[in-house]
């Protein structure tokens, strides 16, 4: 079946609602039954949605209350409203700057991961390189070792010998190395799903392989690239261990590291600062997601649609 056919079919059929017109010989009784079934399904659907929304929204409550509370606790309660916590946080010498650092690390890693993974995934999808599959799986498995605590000595010493201690570039490279296998794995799956016909036409018109990737393949897999970008940014955004091990100056530390400074000498959290910082720390990734989602359609698509 050609992709065009799929597109056509998608356009005019919507299962569950469309389909052939009702059989004129159907009795009112049967229609009533079908109507009742339909109603039950609708109710079921909305109940499911309500439960789902409650499940996913309920934990977020604390983030909406605690930052505005005069004396926040570890539980969510109606705040004794104040904006004082934000003032205190803005006075902190490292807090706001750390968000900028997070942005830098996340953007740097995101760009490297997307570009390198896209190129590699495309080549691996289109050209049969020897040992391709075994290589992919091995890398995927190895990435689980390196993200763990046990690898901290090798990672540190490697960065030390390369003079990458206290360098944001070092953090970006180490994080990129850890994220690339999964990114390639997911993107290759995408590339496998796109049709070859456009690339062939482009080739006939004399486009170079890089041009083909830029102008033909990238538009096709854009939602996939967007997804990988958001995924890698989110991974970097929350990563504490690598920047903590490799960076020394607090002026370069990302938010994940600075968040841990809001504890006392005895390890008690300063919840006023932590909750407020949590809110500011969360907003950029949520905004990014909303932006990407509205611009590129944030989801996986295999093949051509619509």
């Amino acid at each position: 079946m050609s992709t065009e056919a799929t597109t056509d079919l998608e356009k005019h059929s919507s299962p569950g609602r469309g389909g052939p017109p009702p059989d004129p010989s159907a009795t009112g009784h049967l229609a009533g039954l079908a109507g009742a079934r339909q109603a039950v399904r609708r109710i079921g659907f909305y109940v499911f949605c309500c439960l789902l929304l409650a499940f996913f929204a309920l934990p977020l409550l604390w983030l909406a209350c605690a930052p505005f509370d005069r004396t926040p606790t570890i539980t969510a309660s109606l705040p004794d409203f104040t904006l004082q916590n934000f003032d205190t946080l803005f006075d902190n010498p490292y807090a706001m700057r750390s968000l900028g650092n997070s942005l830098l690390l996340a953007a740097g890693t995101g760009v490297l991961v997307v570009v390198f993974a896209a190129l590699a995934a495309y080549a691996l999808s289109r050209v049969r390189l020897p040992g391709r599959d075994a290589l992919l799986y091995t890398l995927l498995l190895l990435s689980s070792i390196v993200t763990g605590t046990a690898a901290m000595v090798p990672l540190f010493n490697l960065a030390f010998e390369l003079h990458l201690i206290d360098s944001q570039l070092g953090v970006i490279l180490v994080l990129t190395g850890g994220l690339l296998p999964s990114a390639i794995f997911i993107l290759k799956d995408f590339m496998d799903g796109t049709p070859r016909s456009y690339e062939e036409s482009a080739q006939v018109f004399g486009a170079s392989p890089l041009q083909i990737v830029r102008h033909v393949v990238v538009p096709l897999v854009r939602p996939g690239l967007a997804t990988i970008a958001v995924w890698s940014v989110a991974q970097v955004w929350g990563n504490f261990l690598i920047p903590f091990l490799l960076l020394r100056s607090p002026e370069k530390s990302p938010a994940a590291v600075v968040m841990y400074t809001f504890y006392t000498e005895g390890g008690q959290p300063d919840l006023a600062l932590i909750s407020t910082f949590s809110l500011l720390y969360s907003l950029p990734v949520v905004l990014m997601f909303l932006l990407v989602s509205s611009r590129y359609g944030f989801r996986f698509h295999g093949g051509i649609k619509r």
């Binding site: 190895l142 390196v146 090798p154 690339e199």
Partner: peptide, 30 residues
């Protein structure tokens, strides 16, 4: 489909593999 050919395909894969070799495979072996 794009007429990549093995050499160019290898070039596409190289940057990713270099980074992975340096910052993933090497520390993992260690």
């Amino acid at each position: 489909a794009a007429g990549l050919g093995r050499p160019r395909a290898a070039a596409f894969v190289t940057p990713a593999l270099l980074l992975i070799a340096a910052f993933l495979v090497f520390p993992a072996l260690w």
